[in-house]
Design a protein around this nucleic acid. Sequence first.
DNA 1: AAAAAAG
Length: 422
Amino acid sequence: MIQRIASSPTPPASFAELGLSRLTLAALKTVNYRVPSPIQAAFIPPALEGRDVIGQAKTGTGKTAAFSLPLIEMHEPGQPGPQAIILAPTRELVQQICGEFERLARGRDLVVRGIYGGEPIERQLRSLAKGVDVVVGTPGRVIDHLQRGTMSLEGVYHVVLDEADRMLDIGFRPDIERILRKVPQPHQTLLLSATLSPEVRRLAARYMHEPVELNLSRDEPSVEKIVQKYIPVDHNRKMELLLHLLELEKPRQCIVFCRTKRGADKLAQRLARRYPGVATIHGDLPQTARNRVMRGFRDGSIPILVATDVVGRGIDVEEISHVVNYDIPDDPENYLHRIGRTGRMGKDGVAYTFVGPDEGIPLTNIEVLINKTLERVVIPGFEVTERGVGVADRSRGRIPISLEGGYRAAAPKPFRQLFSTA
DNA sequence: AAAAAAG
């Protein structure tokens, strides 16, 4: 039997009511967490009971603390080897989770360690030899340690897959399964993401025992505080449009998402002529450069970050006011994650998506997923020059937006010609 | 097809 809980009827007003100890409540006070967010209120109690939990909640609503707090609470001091392993899809996300976990575990005898590629392995070997209670890692390096025999999962009881749909997709699943085979049964499994399609939930259930399923974003998967707009534009004028948009909007901090690493490099180079504060990040950069850029972006010295999807998920930088999809994301789920880099913890944000004449279908797929149409914006001087300009299907009101979950698979894929290229 | 993740 799978237990489904849509949302808690009366969200607890305080962390104390969720069954957290005084030590944890004190740590929460020092980091200024006052009231639990909806996902925290719903997730923490069943997790503390030791149940398996699948948690879906919007971007920027506190999923990291939702799984970290129960792990901290259930931690048993004095045991050898890691008791919990948290897996995430990128090194930067692993580093961020480590930081948050450490802040929340303050005052406890609990060692957290990031285990990821791009960092010299010797340092990780020394940490592991000294003893680690909670491992936060990317799959590749975790497997590396398992092969070397430098890390054992024999004592692990809690497994967390953050960005679970990503971790279970075809690129990662073999690695994840390989790691899970090393975790003794029984164990507790916690899965979290802003996007968990029914298909992924079904798949995930294979790894879990009577999971409690939470969905706190059923009807409205994207964050209300994010203003979402799209701009139809010819591919060869995107750069001009971006410069114009930056002048117009004067973002506090923004991420410009590109489809490819090379594309991100090129755009950053061109942009840097006018904006010296531009930096780029993608998976081809050495980890030292990635770290340097993330530090600069977090401390505000880099106002504009040109990036691939390496920072599309999970990354939490409060001052991001704008997200620009310079290239429309191929996968609608990635759209939701990308725009979720802004509008975090109740702040507002703006997301612009550039849409080329041939990209009506990906745009519609996004709208179907988020169950909402994007506002069309035309920037003066950037009107599309071709004949037949217009969004025919929208004016006819033919975009089917499903009210039931809004997932692509459940809704027909309409063809939409955005504007004529004739 | 691209990006991410081991080196």
